[in-house]
Design a protein around this nucleic acid. Structure first.
Lengths: 208, 208
DNA sequence: TTACAAAGCGGACCAGCGGTCCGTATCGTC
DNA sequence: GACGATACGGACCGCTGGTCCGCTTTGTAA
């Protein structure tokens, strides 16, 4: 009925391609170094198949990326605090960014590939729109942030894949280091200056 | 001596190429749509000349970009406050970011072209390293910022060319609007006193 | 003014890419 | 087993960045 009779080989090939592409992107240093022909060969499939199923190179990358990020997405959409929607906004924003950063650290090459995917900017991808919406809405509940939409863009920019890649590969930072710095930075954006008037007023406990 | 006399035609061609490329990138919607052959043709020059002088596509783009940004660079390096080095850091940081944003607004397409220039990430360009250094050093003089190096990366990321392009082209924001929002945002990162109220105050402020 | 190397030029040429196309093999069904 | 629908695959195309080398232009020194 509404169900299209999916052919078995088609489904199998789809999986094979996703797996092969994932593998190749992870292995390769430069995403541009991975050609569609290579992916096809690695998956044991013809080039035509690849393009028919995914449209173009960008479509393939997006599909692989979507498959990989399913878990994080689920955690954000309906997981427990602090990532899930029930968490208080003040806690959720850092958690969201940390989760996204963690994901990019775990899938560096793939993430870079997605961002420089030929057609259109990274901002055109549905993936970005989704993250921006989530972060914006969470920020909107934090009074100290006057412009949630812009702040969301700015914060998300701080975890751009190529920046993360640069910090790791060129500046030699560890994942944990980056997470720490990002946490501090996000905290700075979220905290309201009004809560801490004058200098030296509020000292005391450095909650870690 | 060490100076080789530059041939007149060589210099003339160089200028012609830079001008033609600048023009083409400014006109074209997508930087990838501008081919080296087009640039060569527009400059009235052979393709070989182009590659001999600039090495590769990335080199060309960087050269055009460098020529364009000379003025801003000079203003930052030895201009009057608030952009120049004599300005107090607290005023200079917003000024720097505003200047960079302004430049990207004025040279949107070229900036996007530079960022997605094939070889290497945007972070590999000398241009980025320079900006990062300036912003980092200025931030270091603002006590409220615990990690100038990371904060500089994060702030610079907020004015990435493709983000700016997105805000203008897709979200329909005006240049002035963006400047305003950025100003607010930067202020948020810079403000705030060095200490915070006990409870959940300013995220993790672990001195390492 | 002429002669002559060195510097520079240009466009034919190449390998490789993303993407298309269509004859052929495979699948699911009756 | 037969048959239509569906998916396959790789030859093929246009175009790109980049190379190469015979030819022209330039600056200089006689």
């Amino acid at each position: 009925m509404t169900e299209r009779k999916a052919r078995a080989d088609a489904a199998r090939n789809r999986e094979a391609v996703l797996a092969a592409a994932d593998e190749l992107f992870a292995r390769s240093d430069s995403p541009r170094g991975v050609s569609m022909e290579q992916v096809a060969a690695a998956a044991g499939v013809g080039k035509g198949t690849l393009f028919r199923r995914f449209g173009d190179r960008t479509g393939l990358i997006r599909a692989v990326f979507a498959a990989r990020s399913e878990a994080v997405r689920a955690a954000v959409e309906s997981g427990p605090p602090p990532l899930g929607p029930t968490a208080p906004a003040r806690d959720r924003v850092p958690a969201l960014l940390d989760a996204l950063l963690g994901f990019k650290l775990d899938n560096r090459h793939l993430s870079v590939a997605l961002e420089d995917a030929g057609s259109g900017s990274p901002y055109a991808a549905e993936h970005y729109g989704w993250w921006h919406g989530v972060v914006r809405d969470a920020l909107a509940e934090v009074e100290a942030v006057p412009d949630p939409a812009f702040a969301a863009h700015a914060l998300l920019a701080a975890v751009r894949a190529d920046l993360v890649e640069h910090l790791v590969a060129v500046e030699g930072m560890s994942g944990e280091e980056i997470r720490g710095r990002l946490g501090e930075y996000v905290g700075k954006v979220l905290d309201q200056d009004s809560s801490c008037p004058g200098q030296g007023g509020c000292g005391a406990s450095a909650t870690r």
